[in-house]
Design a binder for these strands. Structure first.
Length: 449
RNA sequence: GUGGUUGUAGCUCAGUUGGUUAGAGUGCUUGAUUGUGGUUCAAGAGGUCGCCGGUUCGAACCCGGUCUUCCACCCCA
């Protein structure tokens, strides 16, 4: 018989009990922040229609969407021409009409349009669910990972951005993570920037290039921009902006001829001023671009010096619902990358020690009559607040003790023949090794003291 | 999608220039102790050396392919 591999698919992981407890703790912390800010939970399906997702994340994004094969004899219905030509891209639409969701924002936009009559706007929702990307796995990058999204939709008020920045700080402080840097930029500033140099049509490639300035330096960015078709002169014009140390007044000088750029700058200033009043730390970074194509206003990203990639990100999108038939609805939101946050907390040893798996009490199984009594007593112990179990098999003593030890049980309770006839229970403290015998009616009192 | 890297006992890893029967630590089973775990001692079980093919008298070791792991790029939480 062939052994079937026990590997989970590339880029996906199983979680042991401790890991699961820690992950749930992260979700719980964020949830409490979201709910205290009056966001409500929703869920959407793991899969979406392929047409809902395609084209929303750029060309690269389309490639990273996991497509689901149609049911049945899908090849019979496949497009003959593209099948013959082995043209995968063209073939897909005829053999796949569903896909795993790539993020939570686009499905949310669909959701908002679908349920617009049942929602009150502005609608504030949070959503903690897994998403899937067909990326090559590496550090901090998985094919299945959880996003924790918070969005406000149906409002253009910049106070939402202020609130979100506050929630970022609150969230990471609840997680016990110090040293996060919240970076901000504005898509309209980037638009103004390319307008000033007369390359408005190249917004995306230019922003993608300058986004890498931290990584590859000014020279690397220049090289990439040259490759993308900018002239030396145009790059020279950009330079003061990028080297301007993110100083608002120099940005104002640079953008003065661009209406949209000035608009962005004013909005950014509003955000900065109001965050400053509330002591929400925020750093302007005019090289921050963020790849997702749908952002139109402020863009946010959270990084930590001990982690290579961003642990949270988001921004404002003005017309995501438009493609689903509901125009002129603006939204803004952020997404916490739970798996990256987990890796970072793990590396920095920041998980509370209370998150270990533990059982308060374990009854040894010494026979049917004894076990039956143990279950009666454990029901009372559970009501009294203890976590409590009976060893399910009447195996030898040693084995049961060993199990108790492995589980980290605090106290082992023993009812054998002697205890049974005397209406007693032996209590063994697993840490000290001490053992006492008490009457059954004093059991709870003794354990609580 | 591009480039590199990794794979040997349940786990962590040694394994010499290609040479007889592939090792250690830990874990596991049993016993010392049939009502006492975590410590100690003794014995034992456990391997198609990721998989497929090639070179060779001979391959864990060399070559090709494939899968897996991790890393970088692209891109991103």
């Amino acid at each position: 018989m062939n052994k079937i591999s026990t590997n989970s698919p590339k880029g996906t992981r199983d979680f042991l009990p401790v890991q699961t407890k820690r992950r749930q703790w992260i979700f719980d912390q964020l949830k409490s922040v979201f709910e205290s800010h009056a966001y409500v939970p929703i869920e959407t399906p793991a899969m979406e229609n392929l047409s809902t997702l395609m084209g929303k994340y750029g060309e690269e994004g389309d490639r990273l969407i996991f497509k689901i094969l149609n049911s049945g004899d899908y090849l019979r219905k496949a497009d003959e021409q593209s099948l013959q030509a082995k043209d995968s891209n063209k073939l897909i639409s005829s053999i796949s009409e569903k896909a795993l969701r790539y993020d939570l924002t686009v499905p949310f936009a669909r959701y908002v349009v679908a349920h617009q009559n049942d929602l009150s706007f502005p609608f504030k929702r949070y959503q903690i669910q897994p998403v899937w990307r067909a990326d090559r796995p590496q550090k901090g990058r998985y094919r299945e990972f959880y996003q924790c999204d918070v969005d406000v939709i149906g409002s253009t008020g910049l106070w939402s951005e202020v609130e979100l920045v506050g929630m970022i700080h609150k969230g990471f402080s609840k997680l016990g993570l110090e040293g996060v840097v919240v970076k901000v930029n504005h898509r309209k500033i980037l638009a103004g920037m390319v307008e000033v140099i007369g390359k408005a049509d190249m917004l995306i490639p230019i922003t993608v290039a300058i986004d890498k300035i931290d990584k590859i330096g000014m020279e690397g960015v220049q090289k990439e921009l040259l490759e993308k078709g900018l002239t030396e002169n145009e790059i020279k014009m950009l330079k003061p902006m990028l080297e301007g140390n993110n100083d608002l007044s120099s940005m104002r000088d640079f953008l003065s001829s661009s209406e949209i750029g000035m608009e962005g700058l004013n909005e950014l200033e509003f955000l900065l001023n109001n965050c400053a009043k509330l002591n929400f730390d925020l750093q302007v970074d005019c090289s921050l671009a963020r790849g997702l194509n749908y952002y139109t206003g402020a863009i946010l990203e959270v990084v930590h010096p001990d982690f290579p990639s961003s642990i949270c990100g988001g921004g404002r999108y003005d017309d995501l619902t438009g493609i689903f038939g509901l125009p002129n609805v603006s939204g803004v939101g952020i997404s916490f990358g739970a798996d990256r946050i987990y890796d970072l907390l793990e590396a920095k040893n920041l998980f509370p020690s209370s998150l270990k798996e533990s059982v308060d009490l374990l009854f040894l199984n010494m026979g049917d009559e004894e076990a039956s009594l143990a279950l009666q007593l454990s029901s009372e112990l559970m009501d009294a607040g203890f976590s409590c179990m009976l060893y399910p098999d009447n195996k030898n003593f040693k084995k049961q003790m060993k199990y108790a030890n492995e589980l980290g049980v605090k106290k082992v309770l023993i009812i054998g023949t002697e205890e049974l006839t005397n209406s007693e229970v032996s209590i063994k403290d697993m840490e000290s090794g001490e053992q006492i015998r008490v009457s059954q009616k004093d059991l709870i009192k003794t354990l609580k003291s």
